[in-house]
Amino acid sequence: MEVRTIKVFTTVDNINLHTQVVDMSMTYGQQFGPTYLDGADVTKIKPHNSHEGKTFYVLPNDDTLRVEAFEYYHTTDPSFLGRYMSALNHTKKWKYPQVNGLTSIKWADNNCYLATALLTLQQIELKFNPPALQDAYYRARAGEAANFCALILAYCNKTVGELGDVRETMSYLFQHANLDSCKRVLNVVCKTCGQQQTTLKGVEAVMYMGTLSYEQFKKGVQIPCTCGKQATKYLVQQESPFVMMSAPPAQYELKHGTFTCASEYTGNYQCGHYKHITSKETLYCIDGALLTKSSEYKGPITDVFYKENSYTTTIK
């Protein structure tokens, strides 16, 4: 009895394709271990004539594949690729409408935090270190965002349907971005203890939790000093293409032309909904596939993004 075979390709990165001759009487799992086709788990399936010449994702289970996976995804987590594939199996079914010149995501599976993050990423200057993220990001900007969303979920250790947080998501993504040249110098002034300067680099240099107003941050924000008295913390120097200011959701007025974009969060910790506000020729609110415009805006804002380049204080 002759062994019926077909020729397929296996890959971990969709760049390096490895030619395989597979036995049609055995499952993919018996031949390769966990195997995925377009995100779908085909591990328990036997090869079919229609699979001839198709590319299958496999887990990096030998040295060659491990090197290829690390170079593309910059992670050695053995569960990463499987999590990416199972997320992709959902995100490829989502709709990605162009809204006001940006790629958004039609609401499904509690994905409003991903839509808000995706919209924000198209408006701030950011370059990702893992080629996987950078490639998928370019495709997302062009309207094909399924891979990018699935990668975000995998890097953030999230599953489809789980509630997510924009600030946490951005923080994970910033860790995989090139923020080497970003720098922030802060000064804390206390009447009792004097003053202390701190220099922050990388992710810490672009994120701040405690106030939404970048102007206020430049002037000074009140913080408790270690001595128990009130101290003032203010920005001395900022070198970065953008800054992200966050605070627990509270009524906040966004003035046209003073910011790049913002995240609105309605609801409580267990259950809520994100919308995205962007400042173009007027203010726009993007909620999944829905767009509304207004000249002014007041609502429960939790993150505001500002364009920056270089700032030095005039406070002496």
Rank of each mutant, 00 (worst) to 15 (best):
M85Q: 00
L118E: 07
T75W: 01
G53T: 10
T292K: 15
Y234D: 05
T266M: 07
L59Q: 06
G210V: 04
V99G: 07
G299F: 05
Y269K: 15
D109K: 05
Y96V: 04
S86A: 13
K233D: 01
T116N: 01
S50Q: 14
P97I: 11
I301D: 04
F305W: 05
K46N: 13
I301L: 09
S213R: 01
Q196R: 14
A250I: 07
I223D: 07
T116P: 01
L290R: 11
K307I: 10
G272F: 00
Y252P: 00
A231S: 06
A142I: 11
Q123V: 06
Y306K: 00
N111E: 03
H176T: 01
M209K: 15
K7S: 12
V189S: 11
V21Y: 09
A150F: 02
P224M: 14
Y265K: 02
M170P: 02
A117C: 08
Q222I: 07
E296P: 11
C193L: 02
Y96R: 10
I105T: 02
D77W: 05
P47C: 05
Y155D: 04
T169V: 15
G164S: 05
E281N: 06
H256G: 12
I6Y: 09
T211A: 11
K219G: 06
G82W: 12
N61I: 10
L151Y: 06
G288M: 13
A231V: 02
Y84G: 02
P97V: 14
N16P: 03
V189E: 12
L200M: 09
V236E: 07
L186E: 12
S310W: 08
H48K: 14
A154R: 04
D77F: 03
I301G: 06
L118M: 08
K158V: 01
R66D: 08
T64W: 07
Y234W: 05
N14R: 13
N178K: 11
R184S: 15
D165T: 04
T120G: 06
L283G: 00
L121G: 04
V12W: 04
L235H: 00
T266C: 09
G82H: 14
M85G: 02
L114W: 04
T260C: 11
L153M: 11
E162G: 08
L88H: 03
G82V: 15
L254N: 05
F305G: 00
A40Y: 13
E168F: 11
K46R: 13
C225I: 03
E239W: 05
N16W: 07
M85R: 05
I105F: 04
Q123K: 07
M209C: 15
T260K: 02
V185G: 01
E168V: 15
L254M: 09
N110A: 03
N157C: 04
T91H: 02
Y214M: 09
Q31R: 12
C193Q: 04
G53E: 12
K46E: 14
L133P: 01
G299C: 06
K93P: 06
Q238Y: 06
S25D: 15
T312Y: 11
T55D: 04
M245C: 15
C225M: 01
Q20A: 10
A154S: 08
V166Q: 04
I223P: 01
S104A: 10
S104Y: 01
Q237M: 11
R83V: 03
L200V: 12
A40M: 14
D41C: 12
V243M: 00
F259N: 02
V58R: 08
H18D: 10
T19I: 09
T91N: 03
Y73V: 06
C182K: 02
G210D: 03
E239Q: 11
C193M: 05
K191I: 10
D23V: 13
V243W: 02
A108I: 06
D13A: 10
M245I: 03
T91M: 02
T159C: 14
E281M: 01
P131I: 02
A142T: 14
L17G: 03
G228M: 00
L254F: 00
D77N: 06
V8W: 01
E125V: 07
R184W: 00
E215V: 01
T192M: 09
Y138C: 14
D38F: 08
